[in-house]
Design a protein around this nucleic acid. Structure first.
Lengths: 97, 97
DNA sequence: CCTATGGGTAAATTTTTGTTTACCCAAATA
DNA sequence: TATTTGGGTAAACAAAAATTTACCCATAGG
């Protein structure tokens, strides 16, 4: 059961082109470096977007050791988030609770 | 066919609790006054949110004359906007175009 | 030791949203 | 005429997001 606030927050995470592209790239597991290079993102910017995706559970992270270095790999979780007139009915009830 | 930018823009319109509530209230046709009173919105704020909803085509507007005054009525359009791993495949192609 | 790479953070800045305040116009009505 | 009601705008302000700059730590390799 979604409140308007919860649904809005999830949609907000998805409502950014950079994050959508990160999610698309991570349909297959990818390293930070790959993602950053393909999308041309600075390190702090990449991390900031990634935090939002991780917090919302849309992406998962795995650490692998390569040459003694801890390298992070990301993979988009299987999801389907819909906003429809059907779902608005729940929000309507919430207004009158 | 959605680009990341187009999809993000539509999701951005939906990613606000006030706008979700307006959409929910307008599952049945309602006047500006009703909406504003129920949600406690100032006139300019209401108009600003409504512009975004109208521009994105999520809501429709009809003008009725009452006592010589032009009163606006809104109704949420039937819609279903999904963001899923399936849709991300289109965005992935876009990245490599 | 120095430099490169991988993973960070904190703070400042810019840009975008959301919201309020102060106005305007037209029509009805007391 | 004055006031109310419906619809509206422009500009200021506040708050949140996106982005950059400047740093930090650890490890590997020249």
């Amino acid at each position: 059961m979604d409140t308007a606030e919860e649904l809005a927050e999830l949609l907000r995470v998805l409502s950014n082109p950079v994050r959508l592209k990160i999610l698309a790239l991570c349909l297959e597991e990818r390293s930070s470096k790959e993602i950053r290079e393909i999308l041309g993102l600075s390190k702090p910017l990449f991390i900031s977007h990634m935090k939002k995706l991780l917090n919302s559970g849309l992406i998962s992270c795995k650490v692998k050791r390569l040459d003694g270095k801890a390298v992070k790999y990301y993979k988009t979780v299987n999801f389907e988030i819909c906003c429809s007139t059907e779902i608005l009915k729940d929000i309507l009830e919430e207004i009158y609770l």
